[in-house]
Design a protein around this nucleic acid. Structure first.
Lengths: 161, 161
DNA sequence: TTGCTAAGTGTTATGGTATAACATATCAAC
DNA sequence: GTTGATATGTTATACCATAACACTTAGCAA
């Protein structure tokens, strides 16, 4: 279980391979990876940051792909349903999935200084939350696990670039 | 570590003792527990459910304590800062704290059927999230840990009253 | 081909959440 | 009683999200 997002990597490749996986996944599951949806995922992938729906919409608008809010929300609904993106509840914003394809319980480390977001796997049913839930007779359907704080690049010793 | 909220209890007493504790805490810390703030906490305490800011505002309004949104948000800011209430990010709603006074990292079990909310303690820095954060060199300042699911009363066998 | 159906898109309007900004009032400390 | 800090009143606005309906497109069946 590692947290992707705070270390450098070949970003162009990370984008293109993720898109390719999404393409494949849609083909296998008879999902329609339309231009708006594909482009929306590309836009999210372009950053390891969470984007608001209206941020996404602004980019789509510039490219002639739609200007009304439902355009963005529909694309985001599709991407989150397919597991290609997640919503960061603490920010009312969305981010491309870093572990594409798997049905998983994501956890996020969110830097409040530079706004970058790292995604980790956290099977909550095995952690403290799972223990509490079982003890209470509570059945977990979905978890929201987010840590707000300071990423390694933004630690006091080396301020964020 | 237990999850309060899904079992029955003496609610009137739970409200009054919590208010008394809040009163004491404010006196000790030179915080001003004004009528709006006190009444807002009472309103939240009256339910083991999360209330939206505008739900709270509606009640305050009926009682002549203010009708404009900032009234509710200021009261909620005070209550959350003092640790008397928490925001449930997944619901954009607020709930009275069940472990008043302690500076703690709350975790919530939220029933999507009857909307009741249980609060548990979850010191995230000791769990999986803490491990991931340390491995990534990330410093946690605040955590959002919420499980959406079905509470014991709402399990299929015994539908929610 | 035609026609049906399901899914996607375009658009308008509206609802729900949250805060900026500035005026006024209150209260404790000096 | 003046000052300064904090709280409140108020208006306006910004941001986040969805309802509802018209229209289009793709895939499939007769």
């Amino acid at each position: 279980m590692t947290a992707l997002g705070f270390h450098s990597h070949d970003h162009a490749q990370c984008v293109s391979t993720t898109l390719a996986h999404a393409e494949l996944y849609c083909a296998e599951n008879k999902l329609k990876f339309t231009p708006i949806r594909r482009r929306s995922l590309e836009i999210l992938l372009a950053e390891h940051r969470a984007l608001g729906a209206y941020d996404l919409l602004a980019v789509l608008g510039k490219e002639g792909l739609g200007t009304a809010p439902p355009v963005a929300y529909r694309a985001l609904d599709f991407l989150t349903s397919a597991g290609f993106a997640h919503k960061i509840e603490g920010l009312n914003a969305f981010i491309a999935c870093a572990h594409l394809g798997a049905d998983h319980a994501p956890a996020f480390l969110i830097c409040t200084s530079c706004k970058s977001v790292a995604e980790a796997e956290a099977d909550a049913t095995e952690g403290q939350l799972g223990k509490v839930a079982r003890a209470a007779g509570f059945t977990i359907r979905r978890t929201v696990i987010e840590a707000l704080g300071i990423c390694p690049k933004c630690q006091p010793e080396k301020p964020c670039a």
